[in-house]
């Protein structure tokens, strides 16, 4: 077997092997049991005391969501201020300017919602202060926000009737101090040992072999990159993201970055099983997600390894696969694997340029973001999947003529309405945004809407990808799109914020409403939701919903490009 493919298989296997014990640990943390990092308790209590928060007070789902929104609103204002003033704030050795209002708006929201879409280049568009105090801070807290929301849902799905679902701030703080921070420190040490820069000095001047003088950007990179991946954020220190040799120095760091970004989303599935003591349910969810993940990954790896037939016609040897836009040190299989890993979860970091992938590979990347629940983002992936579970339970109940129930709670019209609103919102934001961009491009493609270098099918894919990435809070892009303009910064800013909070509030609302209902013990008449049959049902629901929502748009972009080759 090709050693590169074997490497990818081993990488995925290792990630799963690490995710199971981590899931057990996360379940313990949220259940309030004794764990390894309990020594952080005094620090947590200090923050609670100075904030005037009683972390032991139980909240209902509405109070939890108000708390979530309130702290996010404060961070939004804070991020806007820092980004718009970074030019005259300290820690700016390279003398980079402040961001324009629309770029600051886009960047603040992008990092706030765990997306990290970057319409700027880190080397010239941000300062050390804004990268560390604002952007890296948001990478930690946005990931913790998603994890805390998932913890509330876990608590709501317990076999009991209650409206008390724990304390949001408690879950939030524990996600930071006991999950994200310790893991980030371990990963940062690995990166530093492998040559990733960690310095506050400005650009370095080097002389190349040809005798040219080159200014090389650097900075405290190793501090940011661990949480960039562990928190499924994806925002890089440098514009080239993990294709930059300082952000991803060698094949070992490439492995560590790939494992890091997949680790917590996978662990959250197992954490659900351990927390609810329903391991079979967790394995069913893992199975459905993994089948979806492999359906996207395997074709991508095959297509990229086969190379680009249009380039082959020019007489270029395609023995190494389609290498345009890929790093020679990583090769096609690891780049193709990364491209799906980073899009099924909401990281959006890249070690190769997605714009250069084969048309159907690009389609798979978009499909991964359109589904957004094959593992999904930090905490929010499991919330997105929960929506599909609710729809599948409801449809299954109708099919077999039984009252739809999930974990002993009846699924009724109210929960279905919320699930449908959340599901349809994604299609509306993606297709509405793309339609608007296409309309403006059709009116004035030369001056005011001159953002496409590829005006054909691929140009449509670039615009579709951008809105898909924003709605999924992913952050990767087809970088042929000129997106640092008021139109793109503002419209994608709105898609980012709408695509984040309603899909969190919706599932938490469903879970909170279910928790308040009478618990019905399982009986012979209960529809089993931890079986292979139900797993197939969920997969079918995801397939049908995604196909109905997005197939026409995909036909106009990547599919048309594929058939025109």
């Amino acid at each position: 077997m090709n050693s590169e493919i074997l490497g990818v298989i081993l990488m995925f296997g290792l990630t799963v092997a690490l995710a199971i014990p981590l899931g057990k640990y996360i379940a313990k943390v949220y259940a309030g049991e004794k764990s390894l990092f309990d020594f952080f308790a005094p620090l947590e209590n200090f923050f609670f005391r100075i904030s005037g928060i009683n972390a032991k007070r139980e909240m209902n789902w509405k109070e939890s969501m108000v708390a979530l929104l309130t702290i996010n609103l404060v961070w939004f204002l804070f991020a806007m201020f820092i980004l718009m003033c970074q030019g005259w704030l300290p820690l700016n050795p390279d003398g980079n300017p402040s961001m324009s209002p629309h770029l600051a708006f886009n960047t603040a929201i992008s990092f706030l919602v765990n997306c990290n879409l970057q319409d700027y280049s880190g080397e010239t568009g941000a300062t050390y202060l804004s990268q560390l105090v604002c952007l890296m801070f948001l990478q930690f807290v946005s990931a913790a926000t998603g994890l805390a929301a998932a913890a509330i849902v876990f608590n709501a799905l317990k076999e009991r009737t209650t409206d008390k679902l724990g304390n949001f701030y408690n879950y939030f703080m524990k996600s930071l101090t006991r999950i994200l921070l310790p893991l980030s420190i371990v990963v940062a040490i690995i990166f530093i040992l492998n040559g990733m820069p960690m310095t506050f000095h400005g650009k370095d001047k080097i002389t190349s072999l040809q005798g040219d003088t080159v200014q090389v950007s650097r900075g405290p990179v190793a501090a940011m990159i661990p949480i960039k991946h562990l928190g499924t954020n994806g925002g890089g220190w440098f514009g080239a993201n993990s294709a930059h040799p300082f952000e991803n120095p060698n094949y070992l760091t490439n492995i560590v970055e790939m494992i890091a970004q997949l680790l917590i989303p996978l662990a959250m599935i197992f954490a659900l099983g351990f927390y609810l003591k329903r391991r079979k349910l967790a394995w069913m969810i893992f199975g459905v997600m993994t089948v979806g993940f492999l359906c996207l990954t395997i074709p991508n790896m095959v297509m990229e390894q086969h190379g680009n037939p249009e380039i082959a016609k020019m007489g270029v040897n395609m023995g190494a696969g389609a290498m345009e836009g890929k790093e020679v040190r990583f090769g096609t299989p690891a780049s193709a694997y990364w491209s799906i890993v980073t899009t099924v979860i909401s990281t959006g970091s890249v070690n190769s340029m997605h714009d250069s992938f084969m048309p159907l590979s690009g389609m798979n990347q978009m499909l991964a973001m359109m589904v957004n629940s094959f593992y999904g983002g930090c905490g929010v992936g499991i919330l997105n999947f929960f929506i599909f579970i609710i729809i599948a339970v409801f449809i299954s109940g109708l099919m077999v003529g039984r009252t739809p129930e999930f974990l002993g709670k009846k699924i009724e019209a109210k929960e279905m309405k919320i699930a449908v609103i959340v599901t349809l919102l994604s299609a509306l934001l993606i297709k509405g945004g793309t339609a608007l961009a296409c309309y403006l491009f059709a009116i004035d493609p030369v001056s005011r809407a001159a953002w496409l270098n590829n005006p054909g099918f691929h140009g449509f894919s670039e615009m579709l990808y951008q809105f898909t990435s924003c709605n999924a809070n992913n952050g990767s892009g087809f970088e042929g799109l000129g997106d640092n303009t008021p139109f793109w910064n503002i419209t994608t800013g709105f898609v980012l914020i709408l695509g984040r909070y309603l899909p969190i509030i919706g599932p938490v609302a469903i879970a909170g409403i279910l928790a308040n209902k009478k618990f019905i013990p399982e009986s012979a008449g209960t529809l089993k939701t931890d079986t292979l049959t139900f797993g197939v049902m969920i997969f079918a629901v995801i397939f049908i919903v995604t196909a109905l929502s997005y197939f026409p748009a995909l036909v106009l972009g990547p599919l048309a490009e594929f058939f025109s080759m």
């Binding site: 509405k62 969501m65 108000v66 929104l69 996010n72 609103l73 939004f76 204002l77 806007m80 718009m84 324009s100 209002p101 629309h102 600051a104 708006f105 603040a108 929201i109 109210k414 309405k417 919320i418 008021p486 503002i490 800013g493 709105f494 914020i497 709408l498 909070y501 309603l502 509030i505 919706g506 609302a509 409403i513």
Partner: peptide, 30 residues
């Protein structure tokens, strides 16, 4: 121009958050 755009975008962000606060009650009563 920059000041006007800054104020407008800050206001737009605040309106979004206001909508999210309202969506909590909306989902509760739907």
């Amino acid at each position: 121009m920059e000041t006007v755009m800054t104020i407008a975008l800050l206001a737009a962000g605040l309106v979004c958050f206001w909508l999210f606060y309202k969506s909590i009650d909306f989902f509760d009563k739907i």
